[in-house]
Nucleic acid binder design. Structure first.
Lengths: 210, 210
DNA sequence: CGACCTCTTGAATGAACTCAACAAAAGTGG
DNA sequence: CCACTTTTGTTGAGTTCATTCAAGAGGTCG
């Protein structure tokens, strides 16, 4: 543990809009988010920007860069962010000495594969309404897993970001959020969302009818 | 290398429709496909079956099970399949002794994350036509990477499987394949597909117009 | 040869998109 | 602190793509 902590440095605050690492740049560090949230954005071969995902306080970041030793997406702060950074080479060296740490890293990577595949297979075949409800539930679960409220949390990304992440038009996000508000499923005040009826949200995800 | 090979066994042939491992069963082995192809299927919380993906000759299988130590999906042979199996615990032990092997496994896992995320962010925001063209290109690239022809390969999965994997109706797959045939982009004879105009296929993926 | 399954084709419906205009909020500079 | 600009969010109307439902064609196997 002590030796692990020696690998870790705290960064100074990163302001909204600043880039932590760029797509294609040399992979060297992984990060843990102390506070604030970020988005990952990648330009694909057809030249348009895709939103790969969002990153919340307490989560790890950058591990996707292990292979092929470059970050596959750029990561941008959505608000002021403070992080810890850790040298990856140092981590792998330590892993060979501490088998339990090695296994931990294996599990971490495997979990990311499963999360990513689960999202993929879910999002296919869902209506826009289901995708958005699922997105909100997903944020809620992730905030809860890190000790924050699961019913009230900041919605730091723009409608446009959400839309591009979920593969829909920003107008559709706007209309659906309005519908959720009308049905008293959620409330939104100045960047903070409250899930007033989490059961309803989950019902929407699995079936779309109520 | 010799020690690695000691961990590996060859399986007897598995017939079409047979299950290699079941969703939720204890994770213990990873597999390499010597010949034949398979599909991964998972039942999600809403109770319906999702097609997670397809597995081609030469590819690895089962590594997604590392965390949480159970296979997240069932894997079913689409035709007669022969595989190698390898004990995972033995592999991790060997990794602690051979740092280069550890790094290789890290890379393998990381690559899977990136492949899965790339597919995800692609499939979002694409028309059915683009998704299908991309799917065919993907199969082509994977066959090529393993030394097979990139322009002619077996299409072992049913239209239904393809449809559910891509999140569309089987009728749509049928109609689109017909359109591709009419445009002389592909040919299909008794389970074998030929990509007659790979450039056209790639053009469809990036833009949908020609 | 008939039964079954997969695949194909057609017509009508509907969900989400585009385009366009407007409203609200957040920055910016005097 | 207020006017101004810019960005972000909302709302409406018409269009499009993929779906659903239904029916028929083709292949496979007992």
């Amino acid at each position: 543990m002590v030796r692990l902590e020696k690998l870790v440095n705290s960064t100074k605050p990163i302001r909204a809009g600043e880039i932590v690492y760029r797509q294609g740049s040399q992979f060297d560090k992984i990060y843990a988010i102390k506070s604030g949230s970020l988005k990952s954005v990648a330009v694909d071969e057809s030249g348009d920007e895709k939103i790969i995902g969002f990153h919340l306080p307490g989560e790890l970041l950058g591990i996707e860069g292990v292979y092929p030793e470059e970050y596959p997406a750029s990561t941008i702060a959505l608000e002021t962010v403070v992080m810890c950074e850790m040298d990856y080479t140092g981590l792998t060296k330590l892993c060979t000495e501490i088998p339990s740490l090695q296994n931990q890293v294996f599990r971490l990577l495997s979990r990311d594969i499963n999360l990513s595949q689960a999202e993929h297979s879910k999002s296919v075949d869902q209506t826009a309404e289901q995708k958005l409800a699922n997105f909100l539930n997903n944020l809620s679960a992730r905030y809860e897993a890190r000790g924050f409220s699961q019913t009230e949390f900041p919605l730091t990304m723009t409608r446009q970001d959400i839309a591009r992440y979920l593969g829909m038009a920003p107008e559709t996000v706007s209309r659906l959020l309005k519908r959720f508000k009308e049905q008293n499923v959620i409330e939104i005040n100045r960047g903070t969302i409250s899930l007033s009826d989490t059961q309803a949200l989950e019902d929407i995800v699995v079936c779309a009818v109520r």
